[in-house]
Computed example of a mutant assay.
Amino acid sequence: MTSPTFFDGPDGRRLAYHQTDGAGPWVVFLGGLKSDMKGTKALHLEAWAQQEGRAFLRFDYSGHGESSGSFEEGAIGDWAEDTAAIVAGLTEGPIVPVGSSMGGWQALLLARRMPERLAGLVTIAAAPDFTEDSYWAGFSEAQRAQVTTEGRVELPSDYMEPYVITRRMIEDGRANLVLRSPLVLPCPVRCLQGTADTAVTTETALRLLDHATCDDMRLTLVKDADHRFSDDRCLALIEAALTEVLTVAAETV
C-alpha cells in the first residue's frame, strides 16, 4: 500500500490523505470516530472510483490514523475544520461526501458550510449529534460528574479499545449539533442504515430523515446489517446509492 501524502490543515495539524484524479464531482469519504482511511468502505470506494475514472479523496482527521495529533485532544468541531480545509484545498467544483457514522455528522456539517458545492450526499449509519444524544444522554450521574470534574470518562467499544470521552468533546459537540436547528440539504441524499446496528439506531436515521429539508432524500433500511456495513451486500448498496446520486446530479446540471 502506498504511503499517504500530507496536507497542512488548521492550527498546524498535518492531515494524511490519498487522492485519485478523475472526473467530477469529487467523491469524498468521511470516516467514523476513531476509524481511519484504510477501512473496508474507504478502500472499496477508492477502487470503485478508479475503475469509474472518478475523482476521489480519503483522509484521516487529526488524531486519527496517520494524521498528526492525539484523539483525546480532538472534537467534532476540529474534525469539521479538518474536513472543510482539506476539501477546499485539494478539490474543486462539485463534491459528493460519503459519510460513515460520525462521518455522516461531518458530511452534514460540510453541507452547512459549503452548500453551493454539494452535488449529492450519501450517509452510512449516520450519527449526527451523538455526543449529546448517545453519550451525554446515556451517561449515569456518576459519569456526568466524572466528565465535569475530571474532564474525561472511558466508554467500552464493541470494535476497539475503550473510547475516551472528554468534557471538551461533549461541549464542542453541543456547538455543532445539526438536529436542533434547520438543516437544508440542497442536493439528492441517500441514507443507508442497518437494522442490527448497535451503535446507531434506526430511530436516529428516521429522525434525520424527518428533520432535514430536502427535495430528494431517501432512507434505505437493511435488515440484519450491523454498524460496520461493510460486507459484500452492503458495499454493493453503497455503490448503488452513490451511483444514483451522481446520476441525478448529472441530470440536473
Rank of each mutant, 00 (worst) to 15 (best):
T2K: 13
P4H: 01
G9T: 00
G9V: 00
D11Y: 05
D11P: 00
R13A: 12
H18E: 12
H18C: 04
T20A: 12
G24H: 07
W26R: 07
V27I: 15
V27A: 04
V28G: 01
L30C: 12
G31I: 05
G32K: 11
G32D: 10
M37P: 00
K38S: 15
G39T: 02
G39C: 03
L43Q: 08
A47Q: 15
E52N: 05
E52A: 13
R58N: 01
D60G: 11
Y61T: 01
E66C: 05
G69R: 07
S70H: 13
E72A: 14
E72K: 10
E73I: 03
I76R: 02
W79M: 10
W79V: 07
W79Y: 09
A80R: 08
E81V: 02
D82P: 03
A84Y: 07
V87C: 01
A88I: 03
A88Q: 14
I95P: 03
S100E: 00
S101I: 05
A107D: 06
L108Y: 00
L110Y: 10
A111Q: 11
A111G: 14
P115D: 08
P115L: 05
R117N: 01
A119N: 02
A119F: 01
L121D: 02
T123E: 01
A126M: 03
A126W: 01
A127E: 11
P128H: 02
T131S: 12
D133P: 00
A137E: 15
G138Y: 05
E141R: 12
A142T: 13
T148S: 13
T148A: 14
T149Y: 12
R152M: 15
D158S: 13
D158P: 10
Y159L: 13
M160V: 10
V164H: 09
T166C: 06
T166V: 11
R167E: 11
R167I: 05
M169N: 12
I170A: 13
G173C: 11
R174L: 08
N176Q: 08
L179T: 10
L179H: 08
L179D: 09
P182F: 03
L183T: 09
L185D: 02
L185V: 08
P188V: 06
P188D: 09
L192G: 02
Q193T: 08
T195M: 13
D197Q: 02
T198V: 14
V200N: 03
T201W: 07
T202H: 00
T202F: 01
E203D: 13
E203K: 04
T204Q: 15
A205H: 00
R207P: 07
A212Y: 13
C214M: 06
C214E: 06
L219V: 11
L219F: 11
K223Q: 15
R233D: 12
R233L: 11
L242Q: 10
L246V: 05
T247P: 05
A249W: 07
A250M: 03
T252E: 15
